[in-house]
């Protein structure tokens, strides 16, 4: 799973029917100190995350489909949580 920051969203009227009613958000992977790294990507939100939130993203297809409760869902990542706090020693 990755820590990411939500940096935007994508609007697509013509899309996979199973995506109806779900937000497609643009997320940027970040280090624990907030430093962005790598490329941003798009994912499905199931926890009502908003732009600017720090979120937890499952990036394995099978776990993503599991989280959405539909093993035939054509998705490879899902936002599974909103991170309030990161504790590091």
């Amino acid at each position: 799973m990755l820590i990411c920051k939500v940096i935007g969203n994508v609007v697509a009227t013509k899309k996979e029917p199973k995506f109806k009613g779900k937000k497609i958000l643009v997320v940027q992977p970040i280090e624990v100190d907030g430093e962005p790294y790598g490329n941003s990507f798009e994912t499905i939100d199931i926890v009502q995350a908003g732009v600017g939130d720090i979120v937890l993203v499952t990036v394995q297809g099978s776990s993503a489909r599991d989280a959405l409760g539909d093993m035939k869902m054509p998705i490879d990542s899902v936002i599974v949580g909103i991170i309030d706090e990161i504790q590091m020693d």
Binding site: I7, G8, P36, G52
Partner: peptide, 21 residues
């Protein structure tokens, strides 16, 4: 790889990407 959506708009919030909180 499979195409599963045709994009109408992309909204990116610039300050949401600033380095330090």
């Amino acid at each position: 790889y499979g195409v599963n959506a045709i994009v109408d708009d992309i909204f990116i919030v610039k300050e949401a990407k600033k380095r330090k909180e």
